[in-house]
Design a protein around this nucleic acid. Structure first.
Lengths: 119, 119
DNA sequence: TTGATTGTTAAGCATAGACTTAAGTATCAT
DNA sequence: ATGATACTTAAGTCTATGCTTAACAATCAA
């Protein structure tokens, strides 16, 4: 329940806010790829793609390793999971609240019935 | 499996990238709040808080309504769910891949055993 | 060794983001 | 009617983001 490491979440959500970067993540979810493979679907310069890649790497969403002249990229699932976990924990909060509200309304209804019978 | 509405995702993830806004979401997950209640934990001017609130509202993560002079804010769970859904669908991709890889490795191992026996 | 691949670095530009302060505008209570 | 409350609007500043082009490495293949 504590406020976990917020700083990674900043850069993770920031990274996910761009459609190009989400596209790269989607591609890498299906398997590793080189920089030029990653760049291929996008209508922008290679340096621009590499800059997006750096954002993904800095946020921890992607890891890369260079062999020869080709840099191979793959997703780091843990980072995506931590984003999902944060959302999930919010969901837990509001669902708990809805449950309490529901219980309260049921209680009200029960009282109303009693009063009805009493009349 | 199609690329759903990407534009809302841009602004949803963008909104979540800021710790102040995540704090507001966390607060609102526990129940509705007025603007000044929302502002209270943060060490910044009210206009700054309202600007964050506008980002949340534009992204669809929060809805507000004004009664008298107080604006009451509450979360719109659907928007958060759509962010979670996107992440979940990436996860489905990489898990499918891991499953295929696993099956392949088992197959390799089976062949290796056969060869061993043959010798 | 030359030429083609595959990236990398640097610089610049234009727009968007996260604040601030100062000065309003409604509402509500007395 | 007056003052306090609860925002709102406007304007400005300073930094970060998302690109671009132009040049520069470092492989690899012939």
């Amino acid at each position: 329940m504590l406020n976990n490491q917020p700083q990674p979440l900043n850069s993770i959500f920031q990274a996910l806010a761009d459609p190009t970067r989400r596209g790269m993540i989607a591609r890498l979810s299906r398997g590793p790829a080189s920089v030029s493979e990653l760049a291929e679907p996008f209508d922008m310069s290679l340096p621009a793609v590499v800059q997006h890649l750096q954002v993904l790497e800095t946020s921890g969403l992607v890891r890369t390793q260079k062999v020869g002249r080709v840099r191979t990229c793959h997703i780091e699932t843990k980072a995506l999971m931590s984003a999902q976990d944060w959302i999930q924990s919010q969901r837990a909060s509001w669902e708990a609240r809805f449950d309490r509200l529901d219980a309260y309304l049921q209680e009200l209804q029960a009282k109303e019935k009693k009063r009805g019978r009493r009349k």
